[in-house]
């Protein structure tokens, strides 16, 4: 994979099919529709020992919808950039305009967190102390891949 950056944004080329697929599934991975991902992406404002059921309930009712809308606006931008990708296979070119940087950073992060929640990823896992193989190991590879690209975009994007 080759990545070129300029004032206009980033251009991804020479992507092998596996990399291309990891990028294409990014918006779906970020979806917080399963219980584990939803709990992580929409975490409560109070937890034990300070848990406040009323505050948490009001948060779900009044704050969560706004966050859900914000997060969807980010994943929609990413999905649109992916849909606008030109070429097929290794000839495919993905362009991320500079002004979409924040949406991509957010979506990379949301996908990483959702994957981590779905697969019960712990500090030991991210420190490389997980047995290779299996769904969790695949998820960890995906989390690392998205982290690399997130870091790249973060280095020249204002949050």
């Amino acid at each position: 994979m080759e990545i070129r950056s300029s004032d206009e944004g980033w251009e991804f080329t020479a992507m092998d099919p596996f990399v291309l697929e990891l990028l294409r599934v990014l918006p779906a991975c970020a979806e917080p529709e399963d219980d584990a991902a939803r709990k992580r992406i929409f975490s409560p404002p109070t937890i034990q020992p300070d848990a406040d059921a009323e505050a948490n309930s009001e948060w779900s009712e009044y704050v969560e919808p706004g966050l859900r809308e914000l997060f969807k606006s980010h994943t929609d931008i990413v999905a649109a950039d992916l849909a606008a990708m030109k070429g097929e296979g290794e000839a495919a070119t993905l362009r991320i305009p500079t002004e979409h940087g924040r949406a991509w950073i957010h979506t990379f992060n949301q996908a990483r967190l959702a994957l981590g929640a779905r697969h019960g990823v712990t500090e030991d896992d991210t420190a490389g102390r997980t047995e290779p193989g299996g769904e969790k190991a695949f998820a960890l590879m995906q989390i690392d891949f998205y982290a690399t690209l997130l870091g790249l975009l973060l280095s020249r994007t204002e949050l």
């Binding site: 950073i105 990483r112 967190l113 981590g116 990823v121 712990t122 989390i143 870091g151 949050l159």
Partner: peptide
């Protein structure tokens, strides 16, 4: 702010700054 095993350190730093 609580620890989680996923968020990147540089990202968290930038969020605090912002």
């Amino acid at each position: 702010v609580h620890n989680d095993p996923i968020n990147l350190m540089d990202y968290v730093t930038k969020v605090f700054m912002k």
